[in-house]
Amino acid sequence: MKKLSVIIPCYNEEKTIIQLLSKIETVNLAENTSKEIIIINDCSTDSSEKLIRNFIALHSELSIKYFKTDNNKGKGASIQMGIANATGDFVIIQDADLEYDPEEYNLLLKPILDGFADVVYGSRFMGSKPHRILFFWHTIGNKFLTFLSNMVTNLNLTDMETCYKMFNSSIIKNISLKEKRFGFEPEVTAKMVRFPNIRIYEVGISYYGRTYADGKKISWKDGFHAIFCIIKYGLFKAK
């Protein structure tokens, strides 16, 4: 029996966290694959804590690990905590909002279970699945960061900034991650290519994007920091 560890960083997601957890609960993974859910509450100031604990109490049959930080450390720090506590054969990152659909875990799992991939990225910019139409400059920024990342890593990804990244645990647990906030995406991409003979795949996924009024948190400042991370970890190969 294989196991998928779903890592969920959560900061002030009271509007969506229960709906997300309910979706994950009902996902039927590929044959002979179970799941564990790892929630990292990054010191939320809304009712996320209460909602999560109530959900756990009502779903004792699920394999759920719950952690809460003493102060707001950032998405990257939450992911690092999740990876350290993951016991699955595979790991996927799942934002606590509803921009990405857990029903598509099997799309990312298939190339790994079939023996072709070690890492699979879910791309919002390929395939025929539904995508909400939102911000022009945000899309241009994502594509520019992917282009810049590809230049220094010699990959041909279409969506480096995607949340949906699935790793073989033997890969992700052996990457020394430093970035505490939104620099996780370019850092992990730059560092994973250093593994000899690593096999990286992409699959098209849905994207139900949200606006800043809905609670979207990433900003133009994070874009500039991503450029810094691409140069630092990709071009100069910082550890």
Results as ranks from 00 to 15, higher is better:
L4R: 03
I8D: 11
E13L: 11
E13P: 12
E13D: 13
E14Y: 14
E14G: 09
K15Q: 14
I17W: 05
I17V: 14
I18D: 08
Q19E: 08
V27K: 02
A30K: 13
A30G: 12
T33K: 02
K35P: 00
E36V: 06
I40R: 02
I40N: 06
N41W: 10
D42K: 07
S44P: 15
S44W: 10
S44D: 14
S47C: 14
S47M: 15
S48Y: 03
K50E: 15
I56M: 15
L62I: 01
L62S: 06
S63P: 06
S63H: 11
K68D: 08
N72A: 08
K73G: 03
S78A: 15
M81N: 07
I83F: 01
A84W: 00
A86I: 02
T87A: 12
T87L: 11
F90W: 07
V91K: 00
A96C: 07
D97T: 00
E99V: 04
Y100F: 07
D101E: 10
P102H: 04
Y105M: 07
L113Y: 06
G122Y: 03
S123A: 13
S128Q: 15
P130C: 09
H131G: 06
H131Y: 08
F135V: 05
H138I: 01
K143Y: 00
K143W: 02
F144C: 12
L145P: 06
M151H: 02
N154E: 12
N154D: 13
N156I: 10
M166Q: 10
K180L: 09
F182I: 02
F182D: 03
P186D: 06
P186H: 05
P186W: 07
V188E: 08
V193N: 11
I198G: 10
I198P: 09
I198E: 10
Y208S: 09
Y208H: 13
G209L: 00
R210I: 15
T211A: 01
T211M: 01
D214F: 00
K217R: 13
W220I: 14
K221S: 04
A226D: 12
I227F: 13
F228Y: 14
I231Q: 03
K232I: 04
Y233M: 10
G234T: 02
F236E: 07
K237H: 09
A238W: 10
K239S: 13
